[in-house]
Simulated assay, not measured.
Amino acid sequence: MNQVIETILNHRSVRRFQDKRLSKEEIDMIVQSAQAASTSSFIQAYSIIGITDREKKQKLAEIAGNQTYAAENGHFFVFCADLNRHRVIGKIEETDLNDSIESTEKFMVALIDTALAAQNAAIAAESMGLGICYIGGIRNDLDGVKALLKTPEYVVPLFGLAVGYPDEQNDKKPRLPLDHIYMENEYEQDEDKYKVQLSEYNRIISEYYRERTGGKREDTWTGQMAKMLGRKSRMYMRRFVENQMMNKK
């Protein structure tokens, strides 16, 4: 096993950081690593906003559900799907690009490009001995995030990434079994097989929580998912995205 794979397989979210800011060199290295990610047709449909203003970090933490680690970290990045620069390209090249950049396909390209860049950034940070935590909670109020970060049309802030020197490490959380995720040649249709796999995974997850909490918690994964997916959340998202002139066609 090489060091890259070891870093990837050792991932865990960090939610408590030392009071130590990242250096400019560390920030630049993380962003450059993000930029090295694959990008569909070289479109590079994302932007990264670094939050250094204390009040803005605190506001983002509040929007994210009062997640303190969104404010108390070494640096906070906001990853945005961004087709605004491609709108500008249309002006430079005197070409109407609106039908393309407002399409569902280009919206998906922007989402994928952003996620690939962010994961590169996360792995780079972890390889530097830093900890990371993705913060999807900023999508609780994207109108508020938009106003705070002054993002224009054709830009959707997708998630934050808290990075810093770990003050506390959680145990690595077990993932779904490989043969439940990886299939060959066609999608697995045997629902009974699915149920057996998920039952075994529930046992593993319950044991993980029992050990982590000293017996105070023993959730199953399917129970967690049913509870989470049973609640309607962020149902305004389609309106927000379309108001940003994305995913309209």
Results as ranks from 00 to 15, higher is better:
166 P>A: 07
166 P>W: 06
168 E>Q: 10
169 Q>M: 12
169 Q>I: 09
171 D>V: 06
171 D>F: 08
172 K>M: 04
172 K>P: 02
173 K>L: 05
174 P>R: 13
176 L>Q: 11
177 P>E: 01
177 P>I: 02
178 L>G: 00
180 H>Y: 14
180 H>A: 15
181 I>F: 04
184 E>L: 10
184 E>C: 04
185 N>F: 10
186 E>Y: 10
186 E>H: 13
186 E>Q: 14
187 Y>S: 11
189 Q>K: 15
189 Q>T: 15
189 Q>W: 05
192 D>E: 15
192 D>I: 11
192 D>Q: 15
192 D>F: 07
192 D>T: 14
193 K>R: 13
194 Y>K: 14
194 Y>H: 15
197 Q>W: 03
197 Q>V: 00
197 Q>S: 10
197 Q>A: 09
197 Q>I: 01
198 L>I: 04
199 S>K: 14
200 E>F: 03
200 E>Q: 14
200 E>T: 05
201 Y>D: 04
201 Y>S: 06
201 Y>G: 06
201 Y>L: 08
207 E>Y: 02
207 E>P: 00
209 Y>N: 04
209 Y>E: 11
210 R>D: 13
210 R>K: 15
210 R>Q: 15
211 E>K: 15
211 E>Y: 02
212 R>N: 10
214 G>W: 07
214 G>V: 05
216 K>C: 04
218 E>M: 06
222 T>F: 01
223 G>K: 03
224 Q>W: 03
225 M>G: 03
225 M>Y: 09
225 M>E: 06
226 A>T: 04
226 A>H: 04
227 K>N: 12
227 K>V: 01
227 K>M: 05
228 M>N: 08
228 M>A: 12
229 L>H: 05
229 L>E: 05
230 G>R: 03
232 K>R: 14
232 K>H: 11
